[in-house]
Design a protein around this nucleic acid. Structure first.
Length: 210
DNA sequence: AATCGAAACAACCGCCACCCT
DNA sequence: CAGGGTGGCGGTTGTTTCGAT
């Protein structure tokens, strides 16, 4: 992919068998260390492809199907605040991935949005810039095998129940959950690691000031 | 029933930030 | 401090599906 040799590496749609292999591998070794995943799983895929497949499709954390009205509303507000920070936005919409959000925006919202694709590009917001990498590393570090497995189940259940919850409470419930966004501070954090976002941020969302 | 275009979704690519040596 | 390696992100492209004609 982006980096590395593309020769001999399979590309394109994933087969069921590949999915199973990847799932097994993640269940055993946990998320992270993606460069080792193809080897461990016996997949002829590049690390990025494996990660993407897991994050966007195989992760038990993912909710599929149409966006609810609440989600759409939240998405609209978040996008207004954050711009095209899809991973951040996705982190605030339980069960949705950055790719999902991005696709949804580009296909649905961009047309109706005040700043459509074709016209003016969404200006980059300077306000909020968390440091996903640091936290991500520390989150993924542990070889959370069995422990991680149990979390998976819990999260799935949680999502089932709180599918409509606007503010996720899932932080920590899914330790491998993705540096993408779970390290993004939640309301429940009480501001921990939230130095760059004021409480007003959430108030704005909650009360629709955005 | 066949064809075509649009929409939706999955995957790829290039780049950047960070960590480690 | 510099350079290499890795993870992650946003943008873009390719493929599939769906609806209209």
């Amino acid at each position: 992919m982006g980096s590395g040799n593309r020769e001999g590496v399979k590309r394109g749609a994933w087969s069921r068998e590949e999915d199973v292999l990847l799932k097994k591998c993640i269940q055993i070794y946990g998320e992270g260390r993606w460069h080792l995943v193809p080897l461990r799983a016996g997949l002829n895929r590049c690390r990025k492809s494996c990660r993407l497949r897991w994050v966007n499709y195989l992760s038990p954390n993912i909710k599929r199907g149409c966006f609810t009205a609440d989600e759409v509303d939240l998405l609209r507000r978040l996008h207004k605040l954050l711009g095209n920070r899809w991973s951040l936005i996705a982190g605030r919409i339980p069960g949705r991935t950055a790719n999902d959000v991005k696709n949804f925006w580009n296909t649905h919202m961009a047309k109706t949005s005040s700043s459509p694709k074709g016209s003016k590009p969404v200006e980059k917001k300077e306000i909020i810039k968390p440091k996903p990498h640091n936290v991500a590393m520390s989150i993924n570090k542990p070889q959370q095998s069995s422990e991680w497995g149990s979390n998976v189940v819990d999260t799935r259940e949680t999502n089932k129940i709180s599918g409509k919850s606007v503010f996720p409470t899932q932080k920590g419930s899914f330790s491998g959950g993705g540096p993408t966004a779970d390290n993004w501070p939640t309301q429940a954090d009480g501001g921990n690691g939230l130095s760059e976002i004021s409480l007003g941020f959430w108030k704005m969302l909650e009360f629709g000031d955005v």
